[in-house]
């Protein structure tokens, strides 16, 4: 275990963390403000990546593809809201689960149908290719740093939006008590649509940014969706601050756990069982963390509901 590896893995953990934050932020707001469980949030992340690949193939320019894919993802999200979700607000949570599960099935198959089952790739934009020297002997890819920086920038933007603007005030009020906000004369449908559209765009943005690192394939949204749910539950539903802290925590714990679990276990165990137990323990580390957090704080770390 060397310092170099520790630094690189910490950065990787941060990168996973900001990615999770981009997805979890929309999820926690939609959940907190609209009381709507949107399992289809993960496929919107996948769709962002696919759209970016498509627009890149058309234009050959990453930034143009980024903008087009964001707008297309937004349009698609609003269409889903208009066609399906809007009719489900206020219904039983289980109705949300089954309807959005249906959308996951459909979209996972639809991208396979349109773009084929083989994984696609998106090249890293030219100005961000290559690696930088962090310390003598430690190289780190520029694009991952760009992801971290843009994620942090979005977090800052969200913080300003939510805590300093009028619409942010309404969102916070909505997360605390939506019926009261509606009773005070705010057009709650419009607020829902803005929150939903924004969440969709953030998920799409995450998909686009990660596309050059991961392969773009059907079902890529499913695993990340579960992680995002873990994040918003640990952070407390409806809380952006909670989502941010929990996302970084999960990103770091997961990445560092996977890289060092075997080494740490070998301090107490024989090498052979350590190699068997290590990876399993690393995979379940975040779920252990979630169970622990919920045992001591059954509403997450920063519950938004003022009850």
């Amino acid at each position: 275990m060397s310092t170099a590896l520790l630094i690189v893995q910490t950065l990787n953990g941060l990168q996973l963390g900001v990615l999770l934050f981009l997805i979890a932020a929309g999820l926690t707001l939609v959940f907190g403000v609209m009381d709507f469980i949107n399992l289809a949030h993960g496929v919107q992340y996948m769709l962002g990546a696919y759209l970016a690949v498509m627009f890149y193939a058309l234009t050959g320019n990453f930034f143009f593809a980024l903008v087009c894919a964001l707008l297309a993802a937004l349009a698609f999200g609003l269409m889903l809201e208009f066609l399906v979700f809007r009719h489900l607000y206020g219904r039983h949570h289980l109705d949300h689960v089954i309807a959005t599960f249906g959308i996951i099935l459909f979209l996972n198959q639809a991208v396979k149908f349109v773009w084929g089952p083989a994984p696609l790739t998106l090249p890293v934009p030219e100005m961000f290719t290559g690696s930088v020297v962090l310390m003598p002997g430690i190289l780190y890819p520029v694009w991952r740093l760009v992801i971290i920086a843009s994620g942090l920038a979005v977090a800052l933007l969200l913080y300003i939006l939510v805590s300093r603007t009028r619409i942010g005030m309404l969102v916070r009020a909505g997360a605390t008590n939506a019926p009261m906000v509606s009773a005070l004369g705010v057009d709650i449908r419009k607020l829902f649509m803005i929150v939903f559209g924004f969440g969709t765009m953030l998920a799409g943005f995450a998909g686009i940014m990660i596309a050059p690192i991961l392969s773009v394939e059907p079902g890529m949204g499913d695993t990340i969706l579960i992680l995002a749910f873990v994040v918003i539950v640990i952070g407390g539903i409806g809380s952006i601050r909670g989502a941010f802290i929990a996302a970084l925590l999960i990103g770091l714990v997961d990445t560092l756990g996977r890289s060092f679990a075997v080494d740490i276990l070998r301090l107490f165990m024989a090498p052979s069982p350590a190699r068997t137990v290590g990876p399993a323990l690393a995979s379940m580390l975040i779920y252990l963390l979630m169970a622990l957090v919920l045992y001591f704080r059954p509403s997450g770390l920063f519950p938004a509901k003022g009850r």
Binding site: F31, I37, H93, I226, F229, V230, V233, I237, T276, V277, P279, A280, L281, S283, M284, Y287, L288, M290, A291, L294, Y295, P298, S299, G300
Partner: peptide, 27 residues
């Protein structure tokens, strides 16, 4: 542990234990 929580938190904590069982079996 699970029954200390309510609603959506219950959904997620049962998921967590399900995943732990899954990864235990995988190992």
């Amino acid at each position: 542990v699970c029954l200390r929580t309510r609603g959506v938190y219950f959904i997620m904590i049962t998921l967590a234990f399900g995943q732990m069982a899954f990864f235990t079996a995988s190992s």
